[in-house]
């Protein structure tokens, strides 16, 4: 019984540790996140046109934007 408990606890520890296996990026490793391809809208002109159509159809000017994202600087 004691051995089974030990085994279960060991398995649990390994499972818990695997949850922390994703190491956060260091500040100097965020260059790839700052690339234009990583933004929600890589093409500002196309995005503006899409927004214009959307706002015209929905009468919701300014109601479709998403802020933030990228390198996480400042």
């Amino acid at each position: 019984m004691k051995q089974i408990t030990r085994l279960v606890l060991s398995a649990l520890t390994i499972c818990l540790c695997s949850a922390c296996s994703t190491t956060p990026l260091k500040p100097w490793e965020r260059g790839h996140l700052a690339e234009p391809t990583m933004s929600w809208e890589p093409d500002p002109l196309a995005s503006q046109l899409d927004s214009h159509v959307y706002f015209s159809k929905e009468a919701s000017t300014g109601g479709a934007s998403v802020g933030g994202g990228g390198c996480g600087c400042n």
Binding site: W28, R30, G31, A34, G70, C71, C73, N74
Partner: peptide, 8 residues
């Protein structure tokens, strides 16, 4: 310390 991709 800086990088070219850093906005500030």
């Amino acid at each position: 310390f800086w990088a070219s991709w850093c906005g500030p």
